[in-house]
Simulated scan of single mutants.
Amino acid sequence: MTKLIDIKDRGKKLANFQVLRTSTMPAVLTECGFIDNAVDTAKIKNKCFYRKLGKKSCER
């Protein structure tokens, strides 16, 4: 995923997140950028970024 969206891999973290702990199905939590990082913020504001996350083409 990090190669697909060209974002820094910050590694795996272990934590007791409620969203994962209380889920009734298998779940994975991903963070695809951070708003306190200017480069990530610019990507997050781009619709193409989300299309790449969903593996859809950005071309029309």
Rank of each mutant, 00 (worst) to 15 (best):
R51I: 03
K13D: 00
Y50C: 08
D40C: 06
R60K: 05
I5A: 10
E59S: 11
A15V: 00
K43N: 15
D9T: 04
T24P: 06
R21I: 00
V19A: 08
T41S: 15
T22K: 15
K52E: 12
K55H: 11
M25F: 01
L14D: 10
I44Q: 08
G11Q: 06
I5D: 11
N46Y: 04
K56L: 15
K52R: 14
D9I: 06
D6L: 04
M25A: 15
F49V: 13
L4A: 13
L14N: 07
G33I: 00
K52M: 14
E59K: 15
Y50I: 09
I5G: 07
A27H: 00
I5F: 06
K52P: 10
R60I: 14
E59G: 03
V39C: 03
K56N: 08
T41V: 07
I44R: 02
I35H: 02
R10E: 08
K45C: 10
T30D: 08
N37E: 13
N16S: 04
M25N: 02
G54K: 09
T30P: 03
K3C: 05
V28I: 14
K13T: 01
C32K: 02
E31I: 09
V39W: 00
I7L: 06
K12R: 09
L29Y: 13
I7P: 02
S23D: 05
L20W: 02
F17K: 05
K13Q: 08
C48R: 10
R21W: 02
V39Q: 13
T41W: 11
R21L: 03
G11S: 04
L53W: 04
K56S: 03
A27K: 02
K3P: 13
R51V: 00
F49P: 09
D40F: 07
I5R: 06
E31V: 07
I44N: 06
C48Q: 09
N46L: 05
Y50R: 11
E59W: 02
A15H: 04
E31C: 03
I44H: 12
V28Q: 04
S57Y: 00
T30L: 15
G54F: 08
Y50E: 13
S57K: 07
A27W: 04
K8G: 01
S57R: 13
T41E: 15
C32N: 15
V19N: 00
Q18C: 01
F49I: 09
A38Y: 10
D9G: 06
F34Q: 10
V39L: 10
Q18S: 05
R10H: 08
K55D: 09
T30S: 14
C32D: 13
T2I: 14
L29R: 11
T22N: 08
L20N: 04
K3S: 13
K43I: 08
G54A: 14
K56C: 02
K12C: 02
I7K: 06
I44F: 09
I35M: 13
T41D: 12
D36N: 15
A42W: 02
F49G: 06
G54Y: 01
I7C: 09
M1F: 01
D36M: 05
P26W: 01
M1P: 10
R10V: 06
L29H: 06
L20K: 04
G54L: 13
G33M: 08
C48N: 09
V39R: 14
D6K: 11
R51T: 07
K3L: 05
N46G: 05
R10G: 10
Y50T: 10
G33K: 10
I44T: 12
L14V: 05
V28M: 12
D40A: 06
Q18L: 00
D40V: 05
V39D: 15
K13M: 01
C48W: 12
K52V: 06
